[in-house]
């Protein structure tokens, strides 16, 4: 799942606040410290520019609350899986 950190526009990290339960797994699993918990106890992209699009946050979210936009195949697969 690792991706070469090439120069590119930052990955778009979407968090669906109503689904996020603030469990912190995405923060714990992000290898580049991109994510953090905000005051409401929801995940958010504190340093989106550091994101390398490894998609771990999306896969390890138990509530389908975080997804990576701009990740072309990920985006397609995400929509397909979530919205079916």
């Amino acid at each position: 799942m690792g991706r070469l950190a090439k120069i590119h526009e930052p990955y778009e990290i979407n968090v669906k606040n109503e689904w996020c339960k603030g469990c912190g797994i995405c923060v714990g699993f992000c290898s580049r410290n991109v994510l953090a918990m905000n005051a409401d106890g929801k995940a958010y992209a504190q340093h989106p520019e550091k994101c390398v699009g490894c998609n771990k946050c999306e896969i390890y979210c138990p509530d389908f609350a975080i997804s990576l936009g701009g990740l072309t195949d990920g985006a397609d697969r995400k929509d397909k899986v979530i919205s079916r």
């Binding site: 339960k21 390890y60 979210c61 138990p62 389908f64 697969r77 899986v81």
Partner: peptide
């Protein structure tokens, strides 16, 4: 499911497998 419960992860895995 409770916050952080793994059931959602297994469900996600099942959905990816199905896809």
């Amino acid at each position: 499911w409770c916050s952080g419960c793994g059931n959602g992860l297994v469900t996600g895995s099942l959905l990816r497998a199905i896809e």
